[in-house]
């Protein structure tokens, strides 16, 4: 009920107040996006810690017997797709800023496809791994990584998709060539959201590179 931006208030506000609250909200989306990356960093750091801890401990010489690795092709595919998605999102955001809304939409939807592709590959990879989950420390952390990455890709793709859907609906609702670039409250919130989302995708691609190296290459 206190979602003031979407509700009608029982009293009238001055334009300054409206602007002030809107800025607060834009700031919240901005800093919320960064805080979310911080949260995710700690989550992934826990996984990385587990990886290096078990690798260093090598208990029972069962860190990674026979140097078994999950199929590298999958690893590269998943990461490349997420990198492409991140690049597309970044590209799209740049184009959006310079006013090319169509470019942003096309890039975005291709990005969603890439994200879904990465998600699918990450799930399908379970059928192709040459080890049982409990066969080694490596196998365990790999399963942990897969589950977390499924979550990450799902969240990132969801975020991208909802932003694009919002963009389409804005168009449908208010018409015009580029309601996303308007000065209305919803357009400004939208752009803040796109910015946070772009950062998150960049984070996904970068952290993905780290884990690609850890799980497939090292």
């Amino acid at each position: 009920m206190t979602d003031t931006s979407h509700n009608q208030k029982p009293f009238s506000e001055t334009p300054e107040e409206v602007e002030y609250e809107l800025r607060g909200q834009i700031g919240a989306i901005w800093s919320g996006g960064r805080l979310f990356i911080g949260m995710y960093t700690f989550l992934l750091a826990s996984l990385a810690f587990s990886y290096f801890y078990l690798r260093a401990a090598n208990n029972g010489l069962l860190w990674r017997p026979h140097n078994i690795t999950a199929p590298t092709s999958y690893g590269w595919t998943i990461w490349t797709l997420s990198l492409v998605a991140a690049a597309l999102v970044l590209f799209g955001q740049r184009r959006l800023r310079s006013g090319n809304v169509l470019d942003w939409q096309v890039a975005g939807w291709v990005g969603v496809a890439c994200g879904l592709g990465a998600l699918g590959a990450q799930i399908w990879e379970f059928t192709a791994v040459p080890f049982y989950p409990g066969s080694s420390g490596y196998a365990s952390t790999f399963i942990g990584w897969s589950v977390i990455n499924i979550g990450t890709l799902a969240v990132a793709t969801y975020w991208l998709e909802t932003t694009l859907a919002r963009s389409l609906r804005m168009r449908k609702k208010s018409g015009g060539a580029s309601p996303e670039l308007a000065t209305t409250a919803s357009a400004r919130l939208f752009r803040a959201n796109v910015s946070s989302m772009t950062y998150f995708w960049g984070f996904v691609a970068l952290s993905g590179a780290l884990f690609l190296a850890m799980f497939y290459l090292l």
Partner: peptide, 24 residues
């Protein structure tokens, strides 16, 4: 001391070989 390598805690691999704990 770890449980018997042939017992419940033995390494379990698709090819069916049991990994020995060797040095310990």
């Amino acid at each position: 001391y770890v449980p018997d390598a042939n017992g419940a805690a033995g390494g379990y691999y698709p090819d069916g070989t049991v990994t020995p704990y060797s040095t310990v």
